[in-house]
């Protein structure tokens, strides 16, 4: 149990640091940045109690907001993502999740990619909606969501696989 706590704490701070120092300064094609900090929410233990999970996600988003001066955009999106995660888990893993025997380091690659893609698309859609905050610019929101999500999905899949192999 303690190792779960330790690994999640380390993941929290490591992802935060990588996000604000590297990933938010990539500016690929002028405006595309991946938000890899959501890996923390993706890989949070399934069997933990949900209020704690929501609070952790909120704090993660809040600290990212503080670094990026973005108001409450990332805090809001992270809380949303944490709240709807069971739906995506159920969709992506089906019976594994129903029987409560889901372990993130023993998964098929295709299931993992489906899970990461849906979670990322949802999160980025909320982020850009809150950031632009103007429904008449829905095309811009969708464009940003799609391109940034692609970047995040590739990067976070690689990161998850990289650190899984080491264990």
């Amino acid at each position: 149990m303690n190792s779960v706590l330790a690994s999640n704490t380390i993941r929290f701070f490591a992802l935060l640091l990588v996000q604000v120092t590297i990933c938010s300064n990539i500016n690929f094609l002028g405006y595309i940045n991946p938000f890899i900090y959501i890996i923390f929410i993706l890989l949070f233990p399934v069997k933990s109690n949900r209020p704690l999970f929501l609070l952790c996600a909120f704090n993660m988003g809040l600290i990212v907001d503080m670094f990026l001066d973005s108001g409450g955009v990332h805090a809001g999106a992270s809380v949303c993502l944490a709240f709807v995660r069971p739906i995506f888990l159920k969709y992506a893993f089906g019976t594994l999740y129903d029987h409560q025997i889901l372990k993130f380091n023993k998964l098929q690659l295709n299931e993992l990619v489906v899970y990461i893609s849906f979670m990322t698309l949802f999160h980025h859609f909320v982020v850009f909606n809150l950031e632009i905050f103007n429904i008449s610019q829905i095309l811009l929101i969708l464009k940003k969501t799609l391109i940034s999500s692609l970047f995040t999905v590739v990067l976070s899949t690689l990161l998850i696989l990289l650190f899984k192999a080491r264990k």
């Binding site: 973005s70 108001g71 805090a75 809001g76 809380v79 905050f133």
Partner: peptide, 13 residues
Amino acid sequence: LFGIALSMTIQSH
């Protein structure tokens, strides 16, 4: 929590 985040977002806008 979402209410807090939303109000901060609106405030920043």
